[in-house]
Design a protein around this nucleic acid. Structure first.
Lengths: 336, 336
DNA sequence: TTTTCGTACGAAAACGTTTTCCTTTTTTTT
DNA sequence: AAAAAAAAGGAAAACGTTTTCGTACGAAAA
């Protein structure tokens, strides 16, 4: 630590510790001149208050936690960007935790956070999250909690999401209108809220256009990239392979591109693809990738703003916000 | 906070606070049975120690800080991934700060960290960092500090970098061997160590192959994407435009692709491109992008490991590690 | 038997703030 | 001129741990 504290400062100034503390916090009990002296000395000695002493006394950490499945992921990186922006404006610190899509990690992380290390938590669930006891337990301690994108479906809680159902519907409809008859759907995990909603949209679009749903075309991938490549390869190598792919997450679309390259399947002539994605290079791909693009940065901003509203005025504790932002469908060559 | 503390626990157990504390920390002073009782009660009441009280007393935060220019950036996202992996193994928490390439942000962040909020700092400098007073000041407080990728050139300090000079040289040589005679170099800021080294490699490669260096082909971009697009567009629209581009950072290569698309410049027929990049989609671009790929994840891991070595055995304070990892040049179609 | 030792636990200080309640001095009011 | 009020500052408790000393007691050593 910096070694210089209030005691030292007060000795240097010939004041009491409490007066110095008050001066630094701009209390009305301290005269303007004294404040000036104190500030000057604090500056001179490069005084930095001890955050732990302060947090201990005030029962405030000025810190929030962000719990996400992964960081090397365009969506989450952008979301964090938005979160950080708001947090920085508020003077808050941001602790980041990665669950790596592992439920046990998520559980222990959440448990740790019950110690009061943070004033609020932003979380996007991991693919294995089946029960949410850890989350209701955290919630019960009274610490503000906001879910974004991947939210629990069996718990009343504040959330920030996108119009997943509509987007799933539109994406599927888009493929159908482009001529697809057999549309595969690639997803991460049937436990995820986003998977449910996006697939509900997919199903309803199929229904609307009298296409029958084929379970063999619905692929639930796992967390191993190599295995997913195999799954997709198998899917696309069958004689009755699909003529369209709706991918509910970016990484599976990329894997699909790799597979198509490998087995020489022409996009979009032989198979059309559309995917949820925040790739900056979507339009530069060969062929350019049609996407449903979520406003990831805004999701981060909105989530953080909501969390800070909850942190600041606890009085409003009875109302539960559910914010829904719109994604945009961008047609490119992969589905022409 | 969780409301349940050592005092409460000790009352419940009929023990003193100190005994409970010792039991929880598995002290030899406490009998095995008592420890069992304490653990059971702690579990039952879901006791979580107050991290601030603990940090205040022990003068340890079990937290490190990561200070980076941006997060929506494949290199930094991967690096953080590696850092988090190591930190999690060590049971440390990770505070993330974004400078957004703004020196003032970097300064104030570093200043804040002098309060002792963290036990160590990992940092990659922002493009505007000219003086490093804030960093030497932080260093003087004795807090371990490791720089990665973008490191200060006028300060003796532990660093983790890649073979930037060699990579710059090889990339340029690669373009020359592919037939380029007029190779432009795009960089972020001449203040950055990576810019220096990569450009030194570029210059020496030109020299080796008797190509003369043209200042008009060396473009220093800034932090505004739209402005950069204009700069590149201007560069590529001239009659004596370059026939090769060596981009020292990923985002400028992407911008170059956009510009080439816009002004109908064929890659690689009319202009060849190679760039430092960690794009997962490099091979899927149109055309696929030749890259120098830094081991970003490993950089993160190595940096964090080095930092923890410094945190754990302060005794070794006199030695200064400089770790250099190798990047790999991957030839693809953009430079064929 | 006395002394030494080891085991198991408790009392209290310390970490550096913040905040509540005093105290002293000066100014204003009547 | 006395009383009241305001202004400026200080003493000390509190936040929840950790850790340094004690202390009590039974067992082993002398």
């Amino acid at each position: 630590m910096s070694g210089i504290n209030l005691k030292r400062l007060s000795e240097e100034l010939g004041l009491s510790i409490s007066s110095v503390s008050k001066a630094l916090r701009d209390s009305y009990e301290i005269s303007a001149e004294t404040k000036k002296r104190v500030l000057a000395m604090a500056e001179k000695l490069n005084y930095q208050p001890n955050p732990f002493a302060s947090s201990l006394r005030r029962k405030k950490s000025i810190t929030i936690a962000v719990v996400i499945p992964e960081i090397a992921n365009n969506f989450f990186a952008l979301a964090i960007d938005g979160i950080q922006l708001v947090a920085q404006q508020k003077g808050y610190h941001v602790l980041t935790y990665l669950t790596h899509e592992n439920f046990t990690n998520e559980e222990s992380t959440i448990k740790h956070l019950q110690g009061g290390r943070v004033d609020g938590v932003l979380i996007s669930l991991c693919r294995d999250t089946a029960n949410i006891k850890h989350l209701s337990s955290l919630h019960e301690t009274g610490i503000p909690l906001v879910f974004f994108d991947r939210v629990p479906e069996t718990m009343e809680c504040p959330t920030v999401t996108t119009d997943d159902y509509e987007s799933g519907f539109k994406a599927t409809e888009h493929l159908i209108k482009a001529g697809c008859k057999k549309i595969a759907c690639l997803s991460l995990s049937s436990l995820l809220s986003i998977t449910h909603k996006r697939m509900d949209g997919y199903r309803d679009a199929l229904k609307k256009y009298k296409l029958k749903e084929d379970p063999k075309l619905i692929i639930e991938c796992n967390n191993d990239n190599a295995a997913n490549l195999e799954l997709i390869k198998k899917l696309l190598s069958k004689k009755d392979r699909p003529d369209g792919i709706f991918s509910t997450v970016e990484k599976l679309a990329i894997s699909s591109y790799y597979v198509c390259n490998e087995i020489k399947l022409k996009i979009p002539q032989q198979i059309k693809i559309i995917s949820f994605s925040n790739l900056r290079t979507a339009s530069l791909l060969n062929p350019s990738l049609s996407t449903i693009t979520q406003p990831a940065f805004e999701i981060g901003k909105e989530s953080a703003s909501l969390l800070f509203r909850m942190i600041e005025k606890k009085t409003f504790g009875n109302r539960i916000d559910k914010i829904v932002l719109k994604s945009s469908l961008i047609e490119r060559n992969s589905s022409k």
